[in-house]
Design a protein around this nucleic acid. Structure first.
Lengths: 235, 235
DNA sequence: GTCAATAAAAATATCGATATTTTTGGAAAA
DNA sequence: TTTTCCAAAAATATCGATATTTTTATTGAC
């Protein structure tokens, strides 16, 4: 089945500037290029992306429903703030959604799903090996990490669970990226991914969800630690 | 604490036409005034609401991230379709989110929360009595039903859970309204609300979540039955 | 009659200009 | 110094016009 792959698989070509603005803004917010709390002035964004005001405003409207920007009445808009408390919350809800989606996906996943999981895992493992050797293409790692997690839950037959999981995953990614530079490598994330992969292929739901729980909690802990430290000093 | 009341409590006054368009469109889609699948032509919406094209387009952009309208490249936009399968999915995810939020809320709810729950319950009970006597103000019932459910989960300390619960609740409401006319009154919804209320006030988490589960499932069943019948004939 | 090509009509997306509102930066008063 | 008021500047929200794309209708070929 793996029907959810279709929903986001091959990205559709952008047909409008509005869609383009949406994608660009979204990426820049999640990556941290546009900092949390930053005031998003229309003129500034026009310059940045070489697009008109109308498509940018529409993109901001969409992003406000995604909870990536905060839109306020007659006084413009800003990148939503980040905090340790919110990171914990996001982590908590992500655990809930992703574990449920994973449980369902592993139960239903067919051969095609399995193939996709294997492919995604190997692509992720390969870049993680490179990174351990000093080459760091973090944004490529983010892409493959995301693809691996999507592949795992792709056979989940609840489109709503799939959709909400994605939304919260993106929020979590934002925190992961924010704290990445600061965080020391105490966890062996590669190992966690290997365990996750093995449990999924073995169709061992309990083990897979347990590993996933640890995996997400680990990220959350690292992120909140980094953020709590920052909040203490800079506020 | 009941901190989430603040987040949606007294609705902020609309400062822009864009916000106004968003609220109007949202209501008309959830209420079914704008039918599922309906093509939303800009000109038609301008006439309907007496607003310009720009604010309407921005509202549609927001609604697309809410998954209430589907926006497609160069070919406009339509109200998202409804189906029995989607109703089941929405019901399933709503159960998950609302039960979790309720568990947390009952555990943490303070005196203020309790007061708000009592108030909301009495307002709902009062309109349900009127409805049983033949007076039917369904949209007022929907408003109070929604307020009661919000009051129950208001002390949940996870803003994300609270937010996602609301989104899925609104989707479910859309189905409830669609099937309302057709559905026979086999369930005593008033009784379910009384049980829910009593369990919440008693701080009996297990009973409250069990009743909630039944409550949501009952709505889902009624809705899917009505929709499945319709899909068989009309498609 | 069906199909393909194409012209006309309709609808969408986007720009540039303008009205409105908020913010800023003093100057005057307390 | 702090506060209050006001005008100037900046930013937002929205309109009206236009370019582009899609849809519809029509015509001619097979």
């Amino acid at each position: 089945m793996a029907s959810n792959v279709v929903e986001i698989g091959a990205e559709s070509p952008e047909r409008t500037n509005s869609e383009r603005a949406y994608r660009l803004l979204r990426n820049d917010i999640i990556s941290g290029d546009l900092a949390p709390g930053l005031k998003l002035k229309i003129e500034m964004l026009r310059q940045r992306y070489g697009l008109g005001a109308a498509p940018i405003r529409e993109a901001l409207a969409r992003l406000s429903s995604d909870h990536l920007v905060r839109l306020e009445g007659q006084r413009g808009c800003e990148v939503v703030a980040m905090s340790a408390a919110d990171a914990r919350d996001v982590g908590h809800v992500r655990k809930m959604l992703e574990i449920e989606a994973l449980r369902d996906s592993i139960t239903r996943g067919d051969e095609m799903w399995e193939t996709n999981v294997i492919t995604a895992f190997h692509r992720l493992e390969s870049i993680e090996r490179q990174i351990n050797q000093g080459i760091d293409d973090l944004s490529e790692w983010e892409r493959r990490n995301k693809a691996f997690h999507v592949a795992l839950v792709a056979a989940c037959n609840s489109p709503w669970l799939f959709r909400l999981r994605r939304q919260v995953f993106d929020q979590h990614e934002r925190y992961r990226r924010l704290s990445r530079v600061k965080t020391v490598r105490t966890r062996d994330i590669s190992q966690e991914h290997r365990d996750l992969f093995q449990a999924a292929i073995d169709r061992d739901v309990d083990r897979a969800t347990a590993v996933m729980e640890t995996h997400i909690q680990g990220t959350t802990d690292a992120v909140t630690a980094a953020l709590a430290a920052r909040e203490k000093t800079g506020e």
